[in-house]
Design a binder for these strands. Structure first.
Lengths: 197, 197
DNA sequence: CTGTCCGGAATGAACGTTCCGTCCAAGCTA
DNA sequence: TAGCTTGGACGGAACGTTCATTCCGGACAG
């Protein structure tokens, strides 16, 4: 694949991310996508078999960027609490600062393929050693610093508030400054930490 | 409006709830809706101006049922903690036991009209006395039994985990028994309660 | 000149909405 | 009461639009 082709593919993915995030999968016609990417409609189908495959490819790209952002600056020598706060703060800032990525991921996970992807990820994490950094913390500390609860419940308590708040932020219902972010991260920790501590 | 007509309208709303929840707004054609409601396509347009108005009407119906379910058995003499746990447990059971309603509401609030409705509700609550029972608790106790935080943040900490978990439950990723429900409700309280208590 | 890549017009399917012929029940007439 | 009229409710065929996908003529590099 020539360098020009790679540029073209990137342009398509970039335009797709913007359009999908702003208008939704359904309401983002391939024609408009082509225009925004400065490409002919037909060319999109050179790089992606159909619209679904474009969505899948975009998901892989966005998810990788997210995973990298989450673990940035992680330090395993810190306390469980501090590690958790660090990861979750990374997560919040990434999602808040990348609204297109956030909206895209939300849509993706709410769509039929998203459910399957989620299930697949859980199984993969259980089967292989390559666990998400959050799962690692949860499994290591559940019953100690963290409450002894099913993994899914810990997930819900940790991520639920964040997604909720970022949704409202992007809808213009809340302002999320550094103070609020710290408060939410704190609240998430309070929800999962053992009371004894 | 004749009794037969009222029955017909109910049948349309019922079919709409099921189809919208299972397939989404976009993927639920009016023709299929008509079939499922045992009604001609044209008849739907006697009762609702267009698809959007049908969605709005359905929202009003579902939201009312939800509000009623939440406040069932409320007792203002209980402690703030107990009142909160009662309300939130009501909420969890309703959403878990009414998956169609849950999926419909999720879609609605993620759609363009949903955002406006949310904003409208917030303003209404601020302007008039008719506040949601949760808002009442939050405002009464913020800074006392409950952390002094922006209303939106309290909302996020209280509702975020629940929505997250019910989504996963309906996707078949978790089993939500009475124990789990109590654990989540507890976690939500820990997230918003003042540490001093 | 030839093969490859590209763009956008053309295609066909699916959808929301409209329109019109049919049907039924209630009211009127004799 | 029996027959006739009529207005509105009803269903579904038909319409127009929108979209994903395909296809083909041309441009450009080798």
């Amino acid at each position: 694949m020539s360098p020009a082709s790679i540029e073209k593919q990137k342009a398509i993915l970039k335009a797709a991310l913007e359009l999908f995030a702003e208008q939704g999968f359904h309401a983002a016609p391939m024609a408009q996508l082509a225009t925004q990417a400065h490409v002919g409609v037909g060319s999109i189908y050179r790089y992606f078999k159909d619209k679904n495959e474009l969505i899948e490819a975009l998901y892989e790209e966005v998810d990788e960027a997210l995973q990298i952002a989450i673990i940035a600056g992680a330090d395993p020598t810190l306390s469980t609490r501090q590690q958790f706060l660090h990861l979750i703060t990374n997560l919040i800032y990434f999602l808040k600062d990348h609204p297109h990525e956030f909206k895209f991921l939300e849509q993706y996970y709410h769509s039929p393929f998203g459910i399957d992807k989620k299930r697949e990820k859980l199984l993969l994490d259980n089967a292989t050693g390559r666990q998400s950094p959050f799962i690692k913390i949860f499994l290591d500390s559940s019953g100690k610093e963290i409450k002894f609860l099913p993994l899914q419940v810990l997930h819900a308590l940790a991520f639920g508030p964040i997604l909720f708040l970022i949704r409202d932020t992007l809808a213009g219902l809340v302002e999320m400054d550094d103070t609020v972010i710290a408060q939410v991260a704190d609240g998430c920790w309070d929800a999962i930490k053992n009371r004894a501590d």
